[in-house]
């Protein structure tokens, strides 16, 4: 091959993100290039460092390509964070992926210095997973302690009157089983890998699978590596990351999430889909998080209000459900 690339990420090779998203994408790029490109994927941080270092590794050219969670480097991608907010992200993964693509050049690009973004995507969103409480209103969650998913996820938990607790994901099962936390905001997709159904009884979401915000991920290339590529090779990457692909990976993450809740239910868990009325009370309770975010980013000269509006509009324009 004329061009070989390393793609580094933090999950294991059997995670759907690896086998159903990154592998097919890499193979598609290779096919698009007529075999002139080879992409080798290194899972589980096998090229060294910690997940938080992935962004820096791509910027420095330690690796060519990365897949990472924006939230691992809080404060680095404040604009993109708008898509993680509750009531901005509700339940539509493909629409959110496409909306981020639509707004990228005008609103988001400047915060990805040193990186050429291949694509941004979201997961199915933060569901409420409780040890033993069938929470049907925000007041049920008052004074409970919940594991935070992201920086803004901590604000969501505060807005619900609950206690945010930070811990690495692998510690979650033990923390749940021992009552260190009463629950967590995290998608269903992690249920099989961590066997969360053993420690929780209730998986709670809105009537149409609405969630309380999401997390954004990126696949990015080192900027100068990208700039040195001829146009036809760049096109091979662009074509593999097209809008059709963004829809497809939306489905991949949806299916991973569906698998998670199916396994939970098969193991006797309760899957609570709240009524529209009940869900509205949650949305009301977390609405101030959006304002809090707008205030916060205005400190870095970002027009948060305009960004929220643009994000809502773009998601609505691409709505799939």
């Amino acid at each position: 091959q004329e061009y070989s690339f390393t793609l580094h990420h933090f999950l294991g090779p059997q995670a759907p993100a690896h086998s159903q998203m990154l592998e097919p994408w890499a193979r598609q790029v290779e096919r698009n290039s007529d075999g002139r490109v080879a992409i080798e994927i290194f899972p589980s941080m096998t090229l060294g460092g910690r997940p938080t270092e992935l962004i820096q590794q791509a910027r420095d050219g330690v690796v060519d390509l990365i897949w990472t969670l924006n939230g691992y480097t809080p404060g680095l991608f404040p604009r993109t964070e708008v898509f993680e907010l509750p009531t901005v992200f509700e339940n539509d993964i493909p629409a959110t992926n496409l909306a981020m693509r639509a707004l990228f050049d005008a609103y988001l690009a400047e915060e990805y210095q040193g990186l050429e973004v291949m694509f941004l995507h979201a997961h199915a969103g933060q569901g409420i997973q409780m040890v033993d409480m069938a929470a049907r209103s925000p007041s049920d969650l008052e004074r409970t302690s919940l594991r935070i998913p992201t920086r803004t996820g901590a604000w969501v938990i505060e807005a619900l009157g609950a206690q945010p607790v930070a811990m690495p994901v692998p510690e979650l099962p033990q923390a749940l089983s021992k009552g260190v936390v009463d629950g967590a905001l995290i998608p269903w997709e992690i249920i099989p890998a961590l066997r969360i159904f053993q420690q929780t009884e209730y998986q709670i979401e809105g009537p149409n699978a609405e969630r309380l915000g999401t997390s954004v991920f990126q696949v990015s290339m080192n900027q100068s590596r990208w700039d040195d590529l001829p146009e036809d090779i760049q096109a091979a990457f662009r074509d593999a990351s097209n809008e059709e692909f963004l829809r497809q990976i939306g489905d991949v993450w949806r299916q991973a999430d569906d698998t998670g809740i199916r396994i939970a239910v098969e193991n006797g868990n309760q899957h609570l889909m709240l009524t529209a009325e009940e869900w509205a009370s949650f949305e009301d309770a977390v609405a101030p998080v959006v304002e809090r975010w707008q205030d916060e980013v205005s400190g870095s000269d970002i027009d948060g209000e305009a960004l929220v509006e643009a994000a809502r509009q773009a998601i609505a324009d691409n709505a799939t459900r």
């Binding site: 060294g48 460092g49 910690r50 938080t52 270092e53 820096q56 420095d60 050219g61 330690v62």
Partner: peptide
């Protein structure tokens, strides 16, 4: 050596700050 030298900027800090 470029890859190595760039990785050394954060590798030791990352390794030494692993929570577990």
């Amino acid at each position: 050596p470029g890859i190595l030298l760039n990785q050394l900027k954060t590798l030791a800090y990352g390794q030494f700050s692993i929570y577990d």
